[in-house]
Amino acid sequence: MPVLNDKQKLMRRIQQSCFALAEANLYLDSHPTCKMGLEYFRKHKAEKEELEKEYNEKYGPLTAVQSEGTKKWEWVAKPFPWERGEN
């Protein structure tokens, strides 16, 4: 496993949360009232939102629409999330 820098570590955690959400989605489609399943979903939904907020603050918008768009279009101001290299 390559050594991940902070940005990549945070990205990995976002990917993990997003994957867990996809799994929760599939499970809840057939078990819509399962309390444990709903709890698992809520936990990862909150986690994902928090991690994305952290990513946006530290490394710029994770997706274009997560730009603030107040002073300038942040999406193009910093390296794109998938770009390797600095920061």
């Binding site: 990917q15 994957f19 799994e23 078990h31 399962c34 399943g37």
Partner: peptide, 21 residues
């Protein structure tokens, strides 16, 4: 068989195994 709830994998394991269950 209808899938019943069980303790899912930890998030990192789930992503590697391709399933949370």
């Amino acid at each position: 068989p209808f899938q019943t709830w069980e303790k899912p994998y930890e998030d990192d394991t789930a992503l590697c195994r391709g399933t949370a269950f």
